[in-house]
Nucleic acid binder design. Structure first.
Lengths: 192, 192
DNA sequence: ACAGATTGGCTAGCGACGCTAGAATCTTTG
DNA sequence: CAAAGATTCTAGCGTCGCTAGCCAATCTGT
């Protein structure tokens, strides 16, 4: 029994090692540099061990994405806590969200751009995903007017943030006016 | 002289053939199926001819993206023309935009998701790109209140549409509530 | 303590990718 | 008609994600 549990412990540890290495490699050199060979070298095991933990490269990216959602949820919660009022909370969360996308582009891509085999808008979605969405919901809900579904309004607001973040990062929107666009968005969602 | 021009004509024709084949292949089987070998087989030339026309696969995708922008601009213009009022124009264009993203996902990805070597938010941007953006600008400009920069407001509105389209297509937003989310967005941008 | 069974990691390799060098072919020109 | 030039093709390089099958270390039972 004890031997079995020790083995499982070591296996779990190695699995975390894989995910961490993948995330760090992606964040420092981009996802293009995260090849199975390179990742194997990074964790000092041979290539096929990766496939005893994950079905394939996509599954590893999905695991990184879940970690990223947890990170994002923490940042959003902090931003929300530090803001004095309802409108300030919305602005702080929006700013933190797009800042996250800019500071950690590889992580953000794994979470919201790349196709990863993860359930999203269902109850089976991993806890960190629902947690991150919950932080958005918490700041959007108070600004929903009567008759508006807070969940759908949050989804819409999220989509706007996501669009700003991705279009800007790919050079399709100039970075210089980012703050102004964010202010415009918040203004229109708070009925200003 | 005439021989030279005939050659250039034939070259241009083959270049269009490449772009069209790439687009059709992408639209029917997705970009993953668009390999240089497959594309070469499709146009009935060998692989290296592709590189005498384009620097690489990315450049071919960029050419497809430009074509896609022209298509989108046409659709947006038609939607705008068929709408009776300012608010209806905005709704029609927004609906057409997200519908385009849904109907032609591969084309949309080349235009706005994949990294393609194209200048976007500058004056050197290809005409079809500026044309498509112009159609958005034409419907957003009238709903900009005093003091709001119409260009930046259009960028923000575009980002929201882009976010809705991409998050929905990747399964991160449920498709069922799409119309409601669109209505919420338009409502908030028209100050309703 | 040792032979047999089992688990688990490794070496080696498959097919496909984007891309390119150099041979081969076709066209134009003296 | 042959030399010169342009253009297309064959063949191959390095790398990718992924897997089959060998080998060694570990566990089990006597």
């Amino acid at each position: 029994m004890s031997i079995q549990t020790r083995r499982e412990r070591e296996r779990a540890k190695r699995e975390r090692l894989i995910v961490t290495a993948a995330r760090e490699l992606a964040e420092t050199e981009g996802w293009a540099a995260v090849t199975t060979r390179r990742l194997a070298a990074e964790i000092e095991y041979s290539q096929p061990v990766l496939y005893s933990h994950f079905k394939g490269k996509e599954a590893i990216m999905a695991a990184v994405a879940v970690q990223g959602c947890a990170d994002l949820a923490v940042e959003l919660r902090q931003a929300r806590a530090a803001a004095p009022g309802v409108r300030e909370e919305l602005a702080a969360v929006a700013g933190t969200y797009t800042s996250f996308a800019r500071r950690r582009p590889a992580l953000y891509d794994a979470m919201f751009t790349h196709l990863v085999p993860l359930p999203f808008a269902t109850e089976e979605a991993p806890a960190p995903l629902r947690e991150a969405f919950g932080q958005l919901l918490a700041v959007v809900e108070p600004i929903a007017s009567g008759g508006e579904d807070p969940g759908l309004l949050t989804e819409t607001f999220w989509a706007a943030l996501h669009g700003l973040a991705t279009l800007m990062r790919s050079g399709r929107l100039p970075e210089s006016a980012h703050e102004t666009r964010l202010a415009l968005l918040i203004g229109h969602f708070t009925g200003g």
